[in-house]
Simulated scan of single mutants.
Amino acid sequence: MPVRNCLKPVLEKKLQIKRLTAYRFQKLTGLGRGTSERINDPNWVPNEQTLATICKTFRIQPGEFLYWVPDDSDAMLAELLSHNGIDMEVFGGLN
């Protein structure tokens, strides 16, 4: 899929926490366990309702954590993450 998310590192930076767990994300958003566990998956793109919940809860725009990546170009995503001050190591690399 040409859209990737970097929700977890963006929220960790925004909330100034070292590690955002799925459990903590679930408690903050009220979203289900399965949805909350997907914050670790860069290929996961939230549906409209989930996206609205995330944006409302954390006061962020979708463009802050969703990126279109042509041809699954990891280099392009790394550049976008870097532009937002997120280290690729923190993101956990890409598959």
Rank of each mutant, 00 (worst) to 15 (best):
M1K: 04
M1S: 00
P2M: 14
N5Y: 01
C6T: 14
L7Q: 05
L7F: 03
L7R: 00
K8R: 14
P9Q: 05
V10G: 00
V10P: 02
V10D: 01
L11R: 11
E12R: 10
K14W: 10
K14V: 09
Q16K: 05
Q16H: 14
I17R: 07
I17K: 13
I17D: 12
I17M: 02
R19I: 12
R19S: 05
L20A: 01
T21V: 07
Y23W: 09
R24W: 15
R24V: 03
Q26W: 06
K27M: 00
L28I: 10
T29G: 07
T29C: 03
T29S: 03
G30S: 02
L31A: 04
L31C: 04
L31H: 02
G32H: 08
R33T: 06
G34V: 07
T35R: 06
E37N: 15
R38F: 12
I39P: 01
D41M: 06
P42N: 02
P42V: 10
W44A: 11
V45I: 13
V45A: 10
P46H: 04
N47S: 06
N47T: 09
T50A: 07
T50V: 13
T50I: 07
L51S: 08
A52H: 01
A52W: 11
T53S: 09
T53W: 05
K56T: 13
T57H: 06
T57Q: 09
T57W: 14
F58A: 14
R59F: 01
I60R: 10
I60Q: 04
Q61C: 15
Q61Y: 11
Q61T: 15
P62Y: 06
F65H: 03
F65K: 00
W68D: 14
V69L: 08
V69C: 08
D71I: 14
S73D: 03
S73N: 13
D74Q: 12
D74P: 11
D74A: 13
D74H: 13
A75P: 05
A75C: 10
M76P: 12
L77V: 07
L77Q: 02
E79W: 15
E79R: 15
E79T: 08
L80M: 13
L81P: 00
L81N: 08
L81K: 03
S82C: 04
S82Q: 14
H83K: 06
N84A: 00
N84L: 11
I86T: 05
D87L: 15
M88Q: 12
M88E: 03
E89Q: 12
V90H: 09
F91T: 09
F91M: 07
G92R: 10
G92A: 11
G93M: 02
G93D: 12
G93T: 14
L94K: 04
N95D: 13
